[in-house]
Structure formats: structure tokens, C-alpha cells
Design a binder for these strands. Structure first.
Lengths: 229, 229
DNA sequence: CAAATTTCTGTACGCTGTGCAATTAATGTA
DNA sequence: TACATTAATTGCACAGCGTACAGAAATTTG
């Protein structure tokens, strides 16, 4: 059986553990935005000299990768694959969960998109999506394409929302963000952009749960049309 | 009539023009990636001291915003709204154009997503999309939501593709990127991720024109289902 | 106790954005 | 022509970043 106690290595003891580095990074991410996730900031958070971080990760990109993995690992994949509820509802639940989780740390999605998502949790998420979409009646190839489409949709929507948030703040509530957008849209000259002006109310609500769910539903409609059931 | 010659201002003459600053930034973006788009790099490119750039833009974010505007302004919106071809084809053409243009400078999409897209060219793009989708038979509110969905889809797909490119290089050809992905997928343990392993060929082709077009078609299917025609 | 090994620290280099004061170059007025 | 006014540019400086290198500290093995 796997013995928990490591085989008593030789040199000096480690002051922290790798997961504490990740935890410190996420603490900074939540408190002061993506730019605050710096080697020096993490080291200060842990009470270490900056260089000590390089004992645990080879460079900053590796730390960010571990943070991304941690964030992706928080999603409940069991709920995604359980067949108690219709598959569309399960995907909706996952997407909503991801959105709230990632918008809770504005800038987190920047980290997601700053490197390839090839860790175990990313793979597990893809695998679970494949299972759901196979359930939905898609052939393997179509299920794979649809899973990527969904990832694109979810991360794209979150990225666009995050793009208009000044990163350090703890993300104002949606109602306030919509109000800000509506205010800015009042400055759009109606003679140059008549349709934009006419649809200003809807456009102001692009950053809302409703728009997010609407877009996801259109994507799911398109996917459902490919099911052979 | 509007007189071209500016009314002979008082102080020292400007060494460059604002659009030359943007051009220098784009030159750097293409040659050395998004990280090279720095105030100091731009200044060196123009033969100026770094601070001189602040004569033309208040801070780096403003320069990036101008670069984004320039990139968005290169798209042919006239072709998007002309009714010679079916609306789906027109959107396909726009999406393809945007993808190739943005992937030509890997990291460009990072700039796009680093701030709100509220410039005139961004507005014009939105307005043109609204026109196309109204043509397609959508009510104004639905057209607005669908236009945002399309922007999310296009930028999301490009962002995910760019995420796995090491930014400075001039973007290897698609075939090579697919081959790299296929190679990496061979390391995925089949017993943990059976469906992923089975669909590896399709997954390797996530970064391809075909997947991009497929996803766009599913989104358009979903949108078309809302047309009242 | 000494040797070996690992981790942590001190220092340093080159890079970033950008604020402040002084300089340079152009124009308007006397 | 001389001077004042104004705008653009520069030099310098500061604080921050990632990270490479050498040495000190801590811990286990012989």
C-alpha cells in the first residue's frame, strides 16, 4: 500500500508545501487581482525570500498552471455525469458554477487563457463532457467537437465579461455592471449606430446570467441538432 | 469644408504621429509577441525616449486600446452587410477573416481581451452584426443577444488557440500545431480518460479551420432556430 | 563529529510603467 | 530682432517584476 510518510529525505526541511504556494497565489488573486499573482507577492505571503518559490515551481508559468489546475479541480464532475437530470441541465449547472467561480476572482480567466490547459483536472473535465455528450446521443467525433465548442463558449463569455472589469476590485454585482454599461451606451451617437442605440437595453445586459444562459442555450440547440436520437 | 492643415499650434513640433505609435506597436506585436508591446519598446522603435510616448497616449492601456481598434478596423464590414450572399456565409467570411488576422499576431487576442472593446470600430462591428442578424429574421432583442454570442464564440475560439502558442514565435502552421497536440495526447493514460483517448484524433484537431467552422455552424444553427421567418 | 544533500537567503541584472524637473524647439507678440 | 509663451522631448529616478548565481543554514547519513 502507498505509505503516506515520505521516505525521510536528506537535506533541510521545507518551510511550506506546494499546495500552500498555490493557496497563497489564489489568496492574492482574490484580493488584489491577477497582476498581484507574482513570485515576490507569493513569497511575501508565505514569509519567504522570492527565490525560495523556485524550490517548488520552475518558473512563474508553472505556478499559474498549478493555480489553474486548482481552480478547475473545484468543479463537481460527479454531478455532471450523473444521469438523474437531463443532460442540458447538467451542462447548465456546470457552466453556471464555472462562471461564478471564475468571476469571483476577476482575472482568473486571464490565467486560464495564458497557457495550455493540459493538466489532469482539465483532462477530467473534458472526459466528463465527452460522457455527457455521448449520453446526449452524439457520435464520438461529434461529441469531442461539441465539448470543445462548449469550453470555448464558457471561457469566451467569461473572458469578455472579465475584460471590462478593472482587475483589482472584487467585482461589482451584476446589476451595477449592467447599469454602468447602460450609462456608457448613452454616449453612442444614434445616427451612426442606429441599431446599437435601439438595442441598448439588451446590449447593457450582455454581462448577465440571462445573456450567458441564452448563449449557452443556443449552443446547446446547435449541438442537439446533431444528436442521432 | 474641413481644412486638413491643423491651425498651426504653438509649441514644439511632434516627432511622430499617433498612428505611427500604433504602427510601431503592431510591428512589435507581429515580430516579438504581445509582451514586446511595451512603452519602452515602442519608443525605441520610433527613436524616442520612453516618456515621449506619453505625449500621445496617457498610459499603456490606451496604446493597447488603439492597437485593438486598429485591428478591428481592418475587417471588411461592407462585405458583411451586402446582401449578395446568404447571411450565414457572410458571417463565416467575417469569422474566418478575424481568425486569420488575429492568429497572424499570436497574442493579439490577449490585447483584445485585456480591456473593454468600446471604440468606434468595435461599435461598427456590432452594428453590422445587428444588421446581418436582423436580415436573418431575428427580432431586435434576439439579434443583439445573437451578435454578442457570435463575438464570444469567435474571440473565445481564437483565445483558446492562442493560449497554447508560446507567444513570441510567428505561429507555426496549423498542420504542425495539430501534430504537436496529437503527440501530447499520446501521453494521456487511457485507463483514466478512455473517451479522451478514443477521440484523440478529433481532439488534436481542435486547433483547425474545420473545428472552428464546425463550432461556428452549431452556433449559427442555434441562432437560426430563433428566426421568425 | 564530518560529509552529503536540500532549502533558503543575499545580491544582482535587466526589464517594466511612469512621475518630475529641466531642456529644447516652435510660435506669437512687442 | 528680442522676448515670452507653449508644447514636446529628455534625463533621472523609483518601485516593481522574473530569475540567475553564490553562499549560508539546516537536516539526515556515514
Amino acid at each position: 500500500m502507498a505509505q503516506d510518510t515520505p521516505p525521510a529525505k536528506r537535506g533541510r526541511k521545507r518551510a511550506v508545501r506546494e499546495d500552500e504556494v498555490v493557496a497563497a497565489a489564489i489568496r492574492l488573486l482574490g484580493a488584489r487581482g491577477a497582476d498581484a499573482v507574482s513570485i515576490r507577492g507569493i513569497a511575501a505571503e508565505l514569509g519567504l525570500a522570492p527565490n525560495a518559490v523556485y524550490t517548488y515551481f520552475p518558473d512563474r508559468a508553472a505556478v499559474v498552471g498549478a493555480v489553474v489546475e486548482h481552480l478547475l479541480g473545484q468543479t463537481d464532475l460527479a454531478a455532471l455525469t450523473s444521469r438523474d437530470t437531463p443532460w442540458r441541465d447538467r451542462i447548465h449547472a456546470l457552466a453556471t458554477d464555472l462562471r461564478h467561480r471564475l468571476l469571483a476572482h476577476p482575472g482568473a480567466v486571464h490565467l486560464l487563457l495564458s497557457g495550455p490547459m493540459d493538466g489532469p483536472h482539465a483532462l477530467a473535465l473534458g472526459e466528463a463532457l465527452l460522457a455527457v455528450l455521448t449520453d446526449a446521443g452524439l457520435a464520438p467525433t461529434e461529441a469531442a467537437r461539441a465539448s470543445y465548442l462548449l469550453i470555448v463558449q464558457v471561457l469566451g463569455a467569461i473572458a469578455l465579461e472579465a475584460a471590462e472589469l478593472p482587475s483589482p476590485d472584487p467585482a461589482p454585482p451584476i446589476a451595477e455592471r449592467v447599469a454602468t454599461r447602460r450609462e456608457q451606451l448613452r454616449a453612442v451617437p444614434a445616427h451612426l449606430y442606429p441599431r446599437t442605440t435601439e438595442a441598448a437595453d439588451t446590449i447593457a445586459q450582455f454581462v448577465s446570467d440571462e445573456q450567458y444562459a441564452w448563449g449557452l442555450d443556443r449552443v446547446l440547440d446547435g449541438i442537439e441538432g446533431r444528436a442521432k436520437d
